[in-house]
Nucleic acid binder design. Structure first.
Length: 195
DNA sequence: TTCAGGATGTACT
DNA sequence: GTACATCCTGAAC
């Protein structure tokens, strides 16, 4: 029960990715409003051995620099020119590893989530829009009002963090990761977790 | 319900 | 110049 501490992130990335399931991402905006969701889909990226990781083989570029930061740092980057992805840096500082947040269940002020996600009130959403509310990494960032401006944020602070409500980790499925077909042998690593 | 195609900009070769 | 840890739309079934 409580905000996840740096110790939570300073562990094996696969363990962290599994144990993030069922916890709540909480985002406090500049105006004091809150946006949050329950994590239901994650993927692990482990730079020392993973060709799908931006920092594979410890490759340092301006973009990947955040992956070398201390555990419990937010890694946000632009993808396909128009979407963002939210990750949490794991393991010890200098090991470029992270957990990608691929999906959330709406929680808290869902009305506010709808406005950031679609720009229209909750009661105007179609059944299709509700069904696919937060089931993708770009959607997560849009709904939580996150961009590269939040890259490097410390998750032990108040602006962006993960809340453990004390629930047990739910039963979950394991599979290959999405959208990394270029990653040779790493395409088959079972590092995606979801319920 | 599934599928193809386009949008869009940055990082890196 | 090419690829990219994606999403939306519209058409076909």
């Amino acid at each position: 029960m409580g905000k996840l501490t740096r110790d939570f992130y300073a562990r094996d990335t696969l363990t962290a990715a599994r144990e993030l399931l069922g916890r709540y991402v909480v985002r406090r905006q500049a105006d004091g409003g809150y946006l949050c969701g329950r994590i239901c889909e994650t993927e692990a990226y482990i730079g020392r051995m993973d060709k799908a990781c931006h920092a594979y083989n410890y490759k340092r570029t301006p973009r990947t620099e955040t992956l070398f930061a201390p555990p419990g740092t937010a890694y946000l980057y632009l993808i396909y020119g128009m979407y963002h992805c939210l990750n949490f840096v794991t393991e010890e500082e200098g090991e470029p590893c992270a957990v990608l947040i691929r999906g959330l269940e709406p929680a808290g002020d869902v009305q506010r989530l709808a406005l950031f996600r679609y720009g229209i009130p909750l009661d105007k959403l179609s059944a299709y829009q509700k069904k696919h509310f937060l089931d993708g990494p770009g959607k997560v960032c849009k709904a939580l009002d996150l961009t590269r401006a939040q890259n490097g944020l410390d998750l032990t602070g108040d602006e962006l963090f993960v809340w453990d409500a004390g629930d047990a980790v739910p039963d979950f499925h394991t599979s290959r990761r999405i959208g990394i077909d270029y990653a040779e042998e790493a395409v088959d690593f079972p590092w995606r977790f979801y319920f």
